[in-house]
């Protein structure tokens, strides 16, 4: 399992060097720290799918002594591991550039990443290979562009939800969101495993 996770580093060793300037760019552009954490988290796991969506890769992985359950588990656990690493590197970069950030920025960035991963990982196994990583990346950009205004719209026009959230204490809210995130991530993991077990190569 560890080997499957480590594989992404071997595959992307040159690209990793490009990721750092990308993070720098966001920092220099003075973007919100939560967004920087999110972008940094996304880079490795989603770039990995550019390799994994090829049929040959799946033939290779499935011919090696791994089960399909392990292959998917390595994706979901790997995403968390690389998210942790990316957040660590981003923290260092932010400190170096003297940009202030809070723990909640990290939590929001990481949380959003997990949500995004939960909804997109299964897609990589449902749709035909070749286009899906492009579709997901474009989807991400659109979401990042439109998402905030949708939230604002909901906040302004549906006071019930707004009031409910405001009425919760901060710890309850954070715990609630964290639990919900984990549940969604786990469900996504389960669904992807089922899809992958039925796949033919």
């Amino acid at each position: 399992m560890f080997n499957l996770i480590r594989r992404d580093l071997i595959l992307q060793k040159w690209q990793l060097l490009i990721f750092i300037p990308i993070i720098m760019f966001f920092i220099i552009m003075d973007k919100h720290p939560a967004l920087i954490f999110l972008v940094a988290s996304i880079l490795i796991p989603f770039n990995a799918y550019a390799y994994d969506e090829k049929a040959e890769t799946n033939i290779l992985l499935n011919s090696l002594p791994y089960t399909r359950v392990e292959i998917i588990a390595s994706r979901y656990l790997g995403a968390i591991v690389y998210m942790g690493l990316a957040i660590g590197v981003t923290c260092l970069a932010l400190v170096t550039f003297n940009k202030p950030f809070t723990m909640s920025d990290m939590a929001i960035g990481g949380g959003l990443f997990l949500w995004f991963a939960s909804f997109t990982f299964p897609l990589f196994y449902i749709f035909k290979s070749g286009y899906i990583s492009t579709v997901v990346l474009i989807g991400f950009l659109i979401l990042a562009g439109v998402g905030p205004s949708v939230f604002m719209f909901i906040a302004e026009n549906l006071p019930v939800i707004n009031d409910f959230i405001v009425s919760l204490s901060v710890p309850t809210l954070y715990t609630g969101v964290a639990v919900l995130t984990l549940i969604i991530y786990s469900v996504s993991w389960g669904v992807t495993t089922i899809i992958y077990q039925r796949k033919v190569f």
Partner: peptide, 30 residues
């Protein structure tokens, strides 16, 4: 699968990698 060695018609290894890196990925699996 521990006991099988496989060779397919086409290349199934990551084509952008060199043999050393492929060994790094495949080797520890066994």
């Amino acid at each position: 699968k521990e006991r099988i060695g496989f060779v397919y018609d086409g290349n199934v290894f990551y084509e952008g990698l060199n043999l050393k890196d492929i060994k790094r990925i495949v080797g520890p699996a066994y």
